[in-house]
Design a protein around this nucleic acid. Structure first.
Lengths: 122, 122
DNA sequence: GAAGGTACCTGACATAGCAAGGTACTGTGC
DNA sequence: GCACAGTACCTTGCTATGTCAGGTACCTTC
């Protein structure tokens, strides 16, 4: 089946991408091109370079990550990012917000959808 | 502590609101003003009318919900919404996308954040 | 020297939540 | 009769951020 939910996901992804990137960078210093691959492996196939590079730039501008250029022998120089202390703090906050959201949605999503919605009480 | 994550949440919420609304409506026919209250009870306190009404209009325009006006004796008429068959389908798709996203993020978020990020291998 | 993989970046566009404000109906109290 | 508070709706800008499409450039291999 084709990814018709791709369009939907694009909205769900908002705000999640930064968190995911920050989290991956906390795990292991990395660069944009590789991060795209790592996200794809996680199953987030619909994330493209055009989302990741701007997101990384934002994180750097915000001071959440620091970058260093490392020349490569398999192409142009790679820009390796790693979280700053502020980035770790931001990540922690973001994870709290995410967990809170997931927990808030759980009670309604876990219940099976009723066959017919109940009529409103007047 | 104040809700400093409110700003962050605004991004995390993208796409989640429609799903939550659709899900609540599947549970029980309702109207905007009440839905805001229900979302607040769920812990989604940062959702305001200015988000809910446009979201409901979008859902109606998309054909995901149908609406009917019911006069009230405690104020102006209420606009009750309930999901259409297309809305149920959309909800199902959306829940899949959501679950997929949550599951994709789990493996990286559940691991404890390393004290120091590992140096990249060259 | 052309091709293809690696690696970066950007600009125009669409989406959707937020903030702020406006309208209007109802019952209550004065 | 009138102001008020609560209920209930809606809209206009603003902003953030993902997508799409495209561009640049390095390096190795053929």
């Amino acid at each position: 089946m084709p990814d018709e939910n791709g369009a939907h996901d694009s909205q769900l992804l908002k705000g999640v991408l930064s968190m995911a990137l920050l989290r991956l960078l906390a795990e292991c210093e990395s660069y944009g091109y590789e991060l795209v691959g790592r996200l794809h492996e996680l199953g987030l196939k619909q994330i493209h370079e055009g989302s990741v590079y701007p997101a990384l730039s934002r994180l750097e501008r915000e001071g959440s990550v620091t970058a260093r250029l490392v020349s490569s022998n398999s192409g142009p120089a790679r820009k390796y990012y790693r979280p700053s202390p502020a980035g770790y703090a931001s990540l922690a906050e973001c994870e709290v917000a995410w967990t809170t959201l997931v927990r808030a949605l759980e009670p309604i999503l876990s219940r099976p959808v009723p066959r017919r919605p109940q009529e409103a009480r007047t």
